[in-house]
Design a protein around this nucleic acid. Structure first.
Lengths: 96, 96
DNA sequence: TTACATTTGACAAATATTGACAAGTCAAAC
DNA sequence: GTTTGACTTGTCAATATTTGTCAAATGTAA
């Protein structure tokens, strides 16, 4: 598995001595869901990432970038042999 | 929109003077679906790509690479400002 | 017009994702 | 060894998304 975002969130949360349940309450979701997000079992929604960034005083764009990286990762993970070439193609388009 | 795969398929199909309905019959799907795949309105499944490659005598890996590039593209398209950075992160992981 | 290829929109069915709940593990405190 | 509190896990119903088909529309060449 991958999970850049969850790891980062956990890092931020623990460094601030906050509990899962506190962050979960802030987002108004179950603690279990928050746990899954940190562990990469579930994806956070974009809105959730934004709220997490706010609550943990983190850079929103940085967290969203990790969130997107996880999404890309899960798109390519099943196709490791062609992933690099496909990324190159998608990247070319991006530069326009 | 993007659609590397559909464009390539159409190119291959037309250069061989085949009809949508012929390719569709081969895949055992409706012609309408084949049209949508070529136009990028619908995604082909991996298995469909493989069968298309076979029928159109194309390189399977090449088509799958375009298919994956389209998937990556649609993952990042909503986040153009952070896409490049996220790709870089995902790419780093890939090299391992 | 006719005939045929392709496209489109609407739909039901299949599949996937969501968040909650309940029950579980684990470690520290008692 | 029991209790407590934090976190994790499995399962479920609700919701959302994706899939492929059908019928109708559009395009096109004879």
């Amino acid at each position: 598995m991958v999970n850049y975002l969850g790891q980062k969130i956990r890092e931020l949360r623990e460094s601030q001595n906050l509990l899962l349940r506190q962050v979960a309450a802030e987002l108004e979701v179950d603690t279990a869901l928050m746990s899954k997000i940190e562990r990469g079992d579930r994806n956070a929604s974009k809105q959730q990432v934004i709220e997490i960034a706010k609550y943990l005083k983190a850079n929103e764009e940085e967290l969203l970038t990790l969130w997107l990286a996880d999404k890309i990762e899960s798109t390519i993970v099943e196709e490791p042999t062609i992933a690099y070439q496909a990324m190159k193609i998608a990247n070319k388009k991006l530069k326009k």
